[in-house]
Protein backbone atom coordinates (compact mmCIF):
# COMPACT_ATOMS: atom_id res chain seq x y z
CA UNK A 1 0.00 0.00 0.00
CA UNK A 2 2.72 2.38 0.95
CA UNK A 3 4.60 1.44 -2.14
CA UNK A 4 1.60 2.23 -4.31
CA UNK A 5 1.16 5.61 -2.70
CA UNK A 6 4.81 6.33 -3.17
CA UNK A 7 4.70 5.48 -6.81
CA UNK A 8 1.58 7.59 -7.18
CA UNK A 9 3.26 10.54 -5.57
CA UNK A 10 6.24 9.91 -7.75
CA UNK A 11 4.02 9.99 -10.82
CA UNK A 12 2.42 13.18 -9.65
CA UNK A 13 5.80 14.77 -9.27
CA UNK A 14 7.00 13.25 -12.43
CA UNK A 15 7.59 16.20 -14.76
CA UNK A 16 9.99 17.76 -12.32
CA UNK A 17 10.80 20.81 -14.40
CA UNK A 18 12.68 22.39 -11.55
CA UNK A 19 11.90 25.81 -10.22
CA UNK A 20 10.11 29.03 -11.11
CA UNK A 21 10.92 30.52 -14.43
CA UNK A 22 9.71 32.42 -17.45
CA UNK A 23 8.18 30.62 -20.38
CA UNK A 24 9.30 32.57 -23.43
CA UNK A 25 7.54 30.41 -25.99
CA UNK A 26 5.07 32.90 -27.51
CA UNK A 27 2.89 30.25 -29.12
CA UNK A 28 2.69 28.03 -26.03
CA UNK A 29 1.85 30.92 -23.73
CA UNK A 30 -0.96 31.95 -26.10
CA UNK A 31 0.26 35.55 -25.96
CA UNK A 32 -0.87 36.61 -29.44
CA UNK A 33 -4.41 35.37 -29.00
CA UNK A 34 -4.61 36.95 -25.55
CA UNK A 35 -3.41 40.26 -26.95
CA UNK A 36 -6.03 40.12 -29.69
CA UNK A 37 -8.76 39.25 -27.23
CA UNK A 38 -7.76 41.96 -24.80
CA UNK A 39 -7.44 44.46 -27.64
CA UNK A 40 -10.90 43.66 -29.02
CA UNK A 41 -12.33 43.75 -25.52
CA UNK A 42 -10.83 47.16 -24.84
CA UNK A 43 -11.77 48.47 -28.30
CA UNK A 44 -15.45 47.56 -28.02
CA UNK A 45 -15.85 47.49 -24.30
CA UNK A 46 -14.44 50.97 -23.87
CA UNK A 47 -17.18 52.57 -25.96
CA UNK A 48 -19.96 50.65 -24.25
CA UNK A 49 -18.56 51.28 -20.79
CA UNK A 50 -17.96 54.95 -21.56
CA UNK A 51 -21.55 55.36 -22.74
CA UNK A 52 -22.85 53.57 -19.68
CA UNK A 53 -20.77 55.61 -17.27
CA UNK A 54 -21.50 58.89 -19.07
CA UNK A 55 -25.21 58.15 -18.87
CA UNK A 56 -24.87 57.44 -15.19
CA UNK A 57 -22.88 60.61 -14.62
CA UNK A 58 -25.43 62.66 -16.54
CA UNK A 59 -28.22 61.12 -14.50
CA UNK A 60 -26.43 61.93 -11.27
CA UNK A 61 -25.72 65.45 -12.47
CA UNK A 62 -29.32 66.08 -13.47
CA UNK A 63 -30.53 64.64 -10.19
CA UNK A 64 -28.17 66.89 -8.27
CA UNK A 65 -29.21 69.89 -10.34
CA UNK A 66 -32.88 69.13 -9.81
CA UNK A 67 -32.44 68.79 -6.10
CA UNK A 68 -30.38 72.00 -6.03
CA UNK A 69 -33.19 73.82 -7.81
CA UNK A 70 -35.74 72.29 -5.50
CA UNK A 71 -33.63 73.33 -2.55
CA UNK A 72 -33.31 76.88 -3.82
CA UNK A 73 -37.05 77.07 -4.43
CA UNK A 74 -37.74 75.70 -0.99
CA UNK A 75 -35.36 78.17 0.61
CA UNK A 76 -37.06 81.03 -1.23
CA UNK A 77 -40.45 79.82 -0.09
CA UNK A 78 -39.10 79.53 3.42
CA UNK A 79 -37.84 83.11 3.30
CA UNK A 80 -41.20 84.33 2.00
CA UNK A 81 -43.02 82.39 4.64
CA UNK A 82 -40.73 83.81 7.32
CA UNK A 83 -41.34 87.39 6.14
CA UNK A 84 -45.07 86.80 6.12
CA UNK A 85 -44.86 85.29 9.57
CA UNK A 86 -43.09 88.41 10.84
CA UNK A 87 -45.71 90.66 9.27
CA UNK A 88 -48.52 88.61 10.68
CA UNK A 89 -46.89 88.61 14.10
CA UNK A 90 -46.64 92.40 14.03
CA UNK A 91 -50.27 92.68 13.03
CA UNK A 92 -51.25 90.26 15.70
CA UNK A 93 -49.36 92.33 18.30
CA UNK A 94 -51.14 95.47 17.12
CA UNK A 95 -54.49 93.77 17.22
CA UNK A 96 -53.74 92.46 20.63
CA UNK A 97 -52.82 95.88 21.98
CA UNK A 98 -55.93 97.43 20.39
CA UNK A 99 -58.06 94.66 21.69
CA UNK A 100 -56.74 95.04 25.22
CA UNK A 101 -57.43 98.78 25.38
CA UNK A 102 -60.84 98.25 23.80
CA UNK A 103 -61.67 95.60 26.33
CA UNK A 104 -60.50 97.80 29.19
CA UNK A 105 -62.68 100.66 27.99
CA UNK A 106 -65.65 98.38 27.49
CA UNK A 107 -65.16 97.04 30.97
CA UNK A 108 -65.07 100.50 32.55
CA UNK A 109 -68.15 101.55 30.60
CA UNK A 110 -69.98 98.44 31.59
CA UNK A 111 -69.05 98.87 35.25
CA UNK A 112 -70.21 102.47 35.19
CA UNK A 113 -73.49 101.65 33.53
CA UNK A 114 -74.09 98.78 35.88
CA UNK A 115 -73.40 100.85 38.98
CA UNK A 116 -75.72 103.59 37.76
CA UNK A 117 -78.53 101.19 37.08
CA UNK A 118 -77.81 99.54 40.41
CA UNK A 119 -78.20 102.83 42.20
CA UNK A 120 -81.42 103.52 40.38
CA UNK A 121 -82.70 100.11 41.25
CA UNK A 122 -81.76 100.71 44.87
CA UNK A 123 -83.60 103.99 44.89
CA UNK A 124 -86.70 102.58 43.29
CA UNK A 125 -86.59 99.69 45.70
CA UNK A 126 -86.50 102.05 48.63
CA UNK A 127 -89.39 104.07 47.19
CA UNK A 128 -91.36 100.94 46.57
CA UNK A 129 -90.71 99.82 50.12
CA UNK A 130 -91.85 103.22 51.47
CA UNK A 131 -94.99 103.19 49.41
CA UNK A 132 -95.75 99.65 50.39
CA UNK A 133 -95.34 100.60 54.03
CA UNK A 134 -97.61 103.60 53.61
CA UNK A 135 -100.24 101.51 51.91
CA UNK A 136 -100.04 98.85 54.56
CA UNK A 137 -100.41 101.48 57.28
CA UNK A 138 -103.37 103.03 55.47
CA UNK A 139 -104.99 99.68 55.12
CA UNK A 140 -104.46 98.89 58.80
CA UNK A 141 -105.82 102.32 59.76
CA UNK A 142 -108.86 101.83 57.53
CA UNK A 143 -109.55 98.40 58.98
CA UNK A 144 -109.25 99.66 62.55
CA UNK A 145 -111.50 102.63 61.78
CA UNK A 146 -114.04 100.43 60.07
CA UNK A 147 -114.06 98.00 62.98
CA UNK A 148 -114.42 100.87 65.42
CA UNK A 149 -117.33 102.35 63.43
CA UNK A 150 -118.95 98.96 63.15
CA UNK A 151 -118.44 98.36 66.86
CA UNK A 152 -119.97 101.76 67.61
CA UNK A 153 -122.85 101.07 65.25
CA UNK A 154 -123.40 97.69 66.88
CA UNK A 155 -123.29 99.22 70.33
CA UNK A 156 -125.65 101.92 69.21
CA UNK A 157 -128.02 99.50 67.62
CA UNK A 158 -128.01 97.19 70.62
CA UNK A 159 -128.22 99.84 73.37
CA UNK A 160 -130.37 102.53 71.84
CA UNK A 161 -133.86 102.04 73.36
CA UNK A 162 -136.53 104.70 73.77
CA UNK A 163 -135.62 105.85 77.24
CA UNK A 164 -132.02 106.30 76.39
CA UNK A 165 -133.10 108.00 73.25
CA UNK A 166 -135.08 110.46 75.18
CA UNK A 167 -132.36 110.95 77.64
CA UNK A 168 -129.87 111.64 75.03
CA UNK A 169 -132.17 113.98 73.28
CA UNK A 170 -132.80 115.69 76.51
CA UNK A 171 -129.17 115.92 77.37
CA UNK A 172 -128.47 117.29 73.98
CA UNK A 173 -131.29 119.76 74.32
CA UNK A 174 -129.90 120.76 77.72
CA UNK A 175 -126.44 121.23 76.18
CA UNK A 176 -127.87 123.22 73.31
CA UNK A 177 -130.01 125.18 75.72
CA UNK A 178 -127.07 126.04 77.93
CA UNK A 179 -125.18 127.14 74.90
CA UNK A 180 -128.05 129.39 73.96
CA UNK A 181 -128.30 130.72 77.45
CA UNK A 182 -124.70 131.57 77.74
CA UNK A 183 -124.96 133.42 74.57
Amino acid sequence: MKNVTHSFVFLAHWPSAGSFGLNTDILATNLINLTVVVGVLIFFGKGVLKDLLDNRKQRILSTIRNSEELRRGTIEQLEKARIRLQKVELEADEYRMNGYSEIEREKANLINATSISLEQLEKSKNETLYFEKQRAMNQVRQRVFQQAVQGALGTLNSCLNTELHFRTIRANIGILGSLEWKR
Binding site: P15, S16, F20, G21, L22
Partner: peptide
Protein backbone atom coordinates in the same frame (compact mmCIF):
# COMPACT_ATOMS: atom_id res chain seq x y z
CA UNK B 1 -7.94 33.07 -16.09
CA UNK B 2 -9.19 34.05 -19.52
CA UNK B 3 -7.31 37.32 -19.97
CA UNK B 4 -4.05 37.27 -18.00
CA UNK B 5 -1.09 35.45 -19.58
CA UNK B 6 -0.53 33.19 -16.59
CA UNK B 7 1.52 30.71 -18.60
CA UNK B 8 4.42 33.13 -18.89
CA UNK B 9 5.31 32.20 -15.33
CA UNK B 10 6.56 28.64 -15.05
CA UNK B 11 6.04 26.70 -11.86
CA UNK B 12 7.99 23.66 -10.71
CA UNK B 13 4.80 21.63 -11.21
Amino acid sequence: GALLPWKIIELPH
